[in-house]
């Protein structure tokens, strides 16, 4: 589970669990897990990131697959963990194995779970924001759209420049708040052009950034939803 989901939107976590269970998976959430190490890694604090990578590898050692409801955390494990251990002969193999069986949620569902009927229901128009790490590190673009297309009432309207960064960037969003807000502003304008009822993305960081800017600009109507929430719907 990602730190932001834990802190801000637990319902996204439970939505991810419902989707995986619907797909027939047995899901465990190791209690001792904390952070994948991405904030430290991107700040240049590589030693902490390595310590957290090994901690995570231990906690998920028994799992056949590791599924993450975030492209950036999944990208951290899949793409950046192996880089961090490239010169570490002792741990390299274990980290590589973890990386190879780690997937972003929608990517996992499309690849391995033959989901025909999704539990979610959505009536109205959606627009999808491609979060950067998922898109460029993991190639997440077609997967969420394919899954959203299975919801009968949901109509996807593409925004211009859906692949342009929303300006979140982790600590960037607070360190360079003005630039970050300006980037979010452009994203909000693109969302506004679609007239969609909801903007959907696969990373909560982007969603909080977009939601914060939308609300500040006075848009209280456009829903801001994680793709897992839309696909899983409300709990029974």
């Amino acid at each position: 589970m990602t730190c932001l989901v834990d802190l801000m939107r637990p319902r996204i976590g439970f939505a991810a669990l419902r989707l995986l269970e619907t797909a027939g998976c047995r899901v465990v959430v190791p209690d001792a897990q904390t952070c994948c190490g991405q904030p430290g890694y991107n700040a240049g604090e590589f030693d902490s990131a390595r310590a957290l990578a090994l901690k995570l590898a231990d906690e998920f050692a028994d799992c056949e697959y590791v599924v993450v409801p975030s492209g950036s955390c999944a990208g951290m494990i899949r793409v950046h963990y192996p880089t961090l251990f490239a010169h570490d002969a002792i741990h390299r193999e274990r980290v590589a194995q973890l990386a190879a069986r780690t997937y972003e949620l929608t990517d996992f569902l499309v690849r391995f779970a033959n989901v025909t009927a999704l539990p979610g229901r959505f009536e109205g128009t959606l627009t999808y924001h491609d979060a950067c790490s998922g898109l460029r590190e993991l190639g997440i673009q077609r997967q969420p759209r394919a899954l959203l297309a299975k919801l009968p009432g949901a109509k996807l309207v593409e925004m211009p420049d859906a692949t342009t960064c929303c300006g979140f960037g982790g600590t960037f969003s607070n360190k360079y708040g003005e630039i970050s807000s300006a980037m979010a502003g452009r994203k909000c304008a693109a969302i506004g052009q679609t007239g969609a009822d909801a903007v959907v993305a696969g990373d909560l960081g982007c969603l909080l950034n977009i939601e914060g800017r939308l609300r500040r600009l006075g848009d209280d109507n456009t829903k801001v939803l994680h793709v897992a929430e839309v696909l899983a719907g409300e709990p029974e």
Partner: peptide, 24 residues
């Protein structure tokens, strides 16, 4: 501590309890 965020964006409200609490 979040003034650079709040300069241009609202602070989203958390649900209240953490995922870990609810899951436990």
């Amino acid at each position: 501590g979040l003034s650079n965020w709040t300069g241009g964006r609202d602070v989203p409200t958390p649900e209240g309890r953490t995922f870990r609490e609810l899951y436990r």
